[in-house]
Amino acid sequence: MAGQANTIQVPTDAELLQAQADLWRHSFSYLTAMALRCAVKLGIPTAIHRLGGEEAAASLPNLMAALSLPASKQPFVRRLMRLLVAVGVFAADGVADERYRLTPLSRILVDGVAAADDHHHHVLQTPFVLTATSRQYVEAALGLDEWLRKDAPPAPAPVPSPFEDAHGAPLFDEATAAAIDPEFAAAADDALAAHDSLGIGAVLRECGDLLRGVASLTDCAGGDGATARAIAAAFPHIKCTVLDLPKVIDKAPVDDGVVNYVAGDLFHAVPPAHAVLLKLVLHFWSDDDCVKILSQCKKAIPSRKEGGKVIVIDILIEPSLGPAMLEAQLLMDMAMMVNTRGRQRDESEWRDLFFRAGFSDYKIAKKLGARAVFEVYP
């Protein structure tokens, strides 16, 4: 046995060459993220849009001029764009790959525009890109090996994330601005709002029955109320309430009679309603914390016979969606592990949370890309 431990099977020539290429791809994949960050900071998606990138491809020289970049850097911009075309951020026309169009991905990175029709809402995702590729996020990930070597604190103390270890404060916390950087804290909040607001239109279009018969709804951690306003617009009969921390509610729009804003903490009390919504909330929290949150939500709703339910919209790890979607879900799980105390979950793990919190049953109302819409019943 000892002899076997000191030997290793040598790959075939084909396997070795493929392994080397895979090693390059994984070791340098951070450069894809940094190329995307560069494109966002330069404003390339917006420039392509303004140059007609929806209907007529934008040439590289015109793009250079629109971005006010020196002509001497054109060969380097061409190489940057070649990578971003290869990974699907942009599309290219022509043999020379020097005329560029937007893709669905780069359309959500175009600033200063509105959706072309009334059925969709344009939610700019540049804050998400800039935060996900920030120095603070990268430094937290660089310390992952050291974090894993540390023993966890004695129970019931929570295990701090690598982000907390690196920066001395949790992400999305009152202490983030003071301990790290006010500008970063504000940017992270903007990124969270942008990320959480994307896709609510698809949920409302695909899950119209979800809110049928619901008279009132509390959106927990509902931020600026974008989701609640979208629900109120689609279902005017529903009385919508947004619950969030005081620092968030203080920045919310003035109450216009459409949405009621309540400052509070979902760990302690949730405003009563026919239904409670948790949209991309639970993946930020540990299992024990999720049970506490869900228990408060259960207290806020009537019985199942009276139509009470909790609506959970969150990532559902599902290998059957294919390798690209699974990779995206698992990368989000790593992002939660590095930067928060949360995680992504498969169906059995979601089921355990619901039953631990005292719910009697649940169903998956719809699967939408990486997310699932759960109806959870008291």
Score class of each variant (00 low, 15 high):
Thr46Cys: 09
Thr46Ser: 14
Thr46Ile: 12
Ala47Ile: 01
Ala47His: 03
Ala47Thr: 01
Arg50His: 12
Gly52Gln: 15
Gly52Asn: 11
Gly53Ala: 09
Glu54Val: 14
Ala56Glu: 15
Ala57Phe: 11
Ala58Arg: 12
Ala58Asp: 07
Ser59Cys: 07
Leu60Arg: 02
Pro61Phe: 14
Asn62Thr: 14
Met64Ala: 06
Met64Trp: 13
Met64Asp: 02
Ala66Asp: 05
Ala66Lys: 11
Ala66Val: 07
Leu67Phe: 06
Leu67Asp: 02
Leu67Ile: 00
Leu67Thr: 00
Ser68Lys: 02
Pro70Trp: 12
Pro70Glu: 14
Pro70Val: 09
Pro70Thr: 06
Ala71Ile: 03
Ser72Ile: 01
Ser72Pro: 00
Ser72Met: 03
Lys73Ile: 05
Lys73Arg: 06
Phe76Trp: 05
Phe76Tyr: 14
Phe76Ser: 11
Val77Lys: 02
Val77Arg: 05
Val77Asp: 01
Arg78Trp: 01
Arg78Thr: 10
Leu80Glu: 05
Leu80Val: 00
Leu80Ala: 01
Leu80Pro: 03
Met81Gly: 04
Met81Glu: 04
Arg82Ile: 09
Arg82Lys: 13
Arg82Ala: 14
Arg82Gln: 14
Arg82Thr: 10
Leu84Gly: 01
Leu84Lys: 01
Ala86Phe: 08
Gly88Val: 02
Phe90Val: 05
Ala91Asn: 10
